[in-house]
């Protein structure tokens, strides 16, 4: 099947805006809230959310960090191609904070399980929420759901969802591609 766009650039911007407003609705001035992007690709989304929140609420004070989960994954020694670790940047305490975890695509839920384990090694947050741009429905391996969702889609296992970013790939877009088994 041909790759198809499920979020084009204008829709993408609207979705980011909506997610930001939902965060503001729940967290007001973000007292005790922290924003944490999951490495590697979740941080593109968290960067964007953080920037947009700053524009919407000038002078906003919000701790923002990045979390690498490579050493917490449950597929270590079981993957065909090993993953390289990325950097963790958390120079604040999460003890008693309301954490918003950010990742681009919610699929099996295993990444988020690993992220929660990694997070708890830094302290005991008051609450953990999950924000995701794309939620692939009916594909979960674990009982994990997102609190803030950009778009829910139905897809099958042989398809992959690719999120492209302006800074990285030239334009903000989300694609569905079919994996070609012949390659």
């Amino acid at each position: 099947m041909q790759p198809r766009v499920i979020l084009d650039t204008p829709q993408f911007a609207l979705t980011i805006d909506r997610l930001c407003y939902q965060l503001i609705e729940n967290h007001n001035d973000f007292t005790d809230a922290v924003l944490i992007g999951v490495q590697p690709r979740g941080t593109f989304l968290s960067n964007r959310i953080y920037q947009r929140l700053q524009q919407l609420q000038p002078g906003l004070k919000l701790d923002y960090g990045k979390l690498d989960i490579t050493f917490y994954r449950d597929d270590f020694r079981r993957r065909e191609t090993p993953l390289a670790a990325s950097e963790t940047e958390l120079d604040f305490s999460i003890e008693g904070k309301k954490v918003v975890l950010v990742d681009d695509v919610l699929y099996t839920g295993r990444t988020i399980r690993a992220a929660m384990d990694a997070l708890l090694d830094f302290g005991r947050p008051q609450r953990v929420e999950l924000l995701t741009l794309i939620d692939r429905r009916f594909t979960r391996h674990l009982p994990i759901e997102a609190n803030y969702v950009g778009k829910k889609i139905d897809s099958i296992a042989s398809e992959i969802v690719r999120v492209e970013w302006h800074d990285q790939d030239g334009a903000d877009k989300v694609w569905i591609l079919t994996v070609n088994k012949d390659n």
Binding site: Y72, A84, A85, T88
Partner: peptide, 18 residues
């Protein structure tokens, strides 16, 4: 990889489950 582990060693819980 050691760069990342050095970071782990400076955390409150200096341990990963790998």
């Amino acid at each position: 990889t050691a760069d990342q582990f050095k970071d782990v060693l400076n955390r409150p819980i200096k341990k990963v489950p790998s």
